[in-house]
């Protein structure tokens, strides 16, 4: 494997203190090569989103290390880190500021990082995610869920990051809309050489999007396998097999 773009070593996250302490992530570790798409699958409470929040710096209280290109990510995260690593959230209905025009939302990262040619970049970012330039002048409530998620992707892309963290980016969308957003994410990754870390509870989505997949349950990564293994149900751990079976057929007993 080439030098990893992102590496997680012995990552542990705990919430609460003393008796109410919950170990949300327990000694997790993985490496993601440049241009690779790495998936984390797990059920609710498995700690998969907590890992993303720790990587992004939204939650700074973690043990272990997050390495970007071999160097530990600064704590707290600085602007240079955010320029490199961006995130797309699960629910496009809550990840865009409801009272700000799309243009203002997209302008913000450019202002913070002092980019030039701002209007040009916004128009380009919108067209990259398949939206007409007029969308800049709308408010979030005037957009559909799929359009909002495209705007959220455009916002993440404006800083030209190399690593994208995707937190269930399509679970709030209809399947027909999901297809378009997943295609877009795949195209963007290939054309820009982006590295993805994607979290999902949906086996279909994760197998389609990622080449390697970590299976998480109760805060631990129990197994790491390839998408082909996942499709051919070639899993070592019982939990992984159970997850695959449950996702393939609706009725466990039938």
């Amino acid at each position: 494997m080439t030098a990893p773009s992102l590496e997680i070593v012995n990552l542990s996250v705990a919430f609460g203190s003393d008796r109410a302490r919950v170990q949300a992530v327990d000694n997790a570790g993985f490496r993601v090569a440049p241009g690779e798409s790495f998936g984390i699958i797990g059920e609710s409470g498995s700690g998969k989103s907590t890992i993303l929040r720790a990587i992004s710096g939204l939650n700074d209280e973690y043990d272990g290390s997050v390495l970007i290109d071999g160097r530990a990510a600064p704590r707290p995260r600085n602007k240079a880190f955010f320029k490199n690593v961006q995130m797309v959230f699960q629910d496009p209905y809550s990840s865009l500021h409801p009272r700000r025009m799309i243009r203002a939302t997209l302008m913000e990262p450019l202002e913070i990082h002092r980019f030039d040619r701002r209007d040009e970049r916004i128009a380009q970012a919108l067209s990259d995610v398949g939206l007409a330039p007029e969308f800049a002048y709308r408010y979030p409530h005037q957009l559909s869920g799929g359009q909002r998620q495209r705007v959220a992707v455009a916002r993440a892309l404006l800083l030209e990051p190399r690593i994208m963290l995707l937190d269930e980016p399509t679970s709030a969308l209809d399947v027909s809309v999901q297809a378009g957003v997943l295609n877009l994410l795949n195209t963007l990754r290939l054309s820009r050489g982006l590295t993805y870390v994607m979290v999902s509870h949906d086996l279909r989505v994760i197998a389609h999007m990622c080449s390697r997949i970590a299976v998480m349950t109760q805060g631990r990564i129990v197994e790491e396998l390839s998408a082909d293994d996942l499709r051919s149900q070639n899993a070592e751990q019982d939990y992984t097999r159970e997850l695959i079976t449950a996702s393939r057929v609706a009725l466990a007993a039938e």
């Binding site: 997943l182 295609n183 279909r204």
Partner: peptide, 12 residues
């Protein structure tokens, strides 16, 4: 439009 579970596709 659903990603298939049994084979790999390039585009949905």
């Amino acid at each position: 439009s659903l990603p298939p579970l049994d084979r790999r596709v390039e585009e949905l």
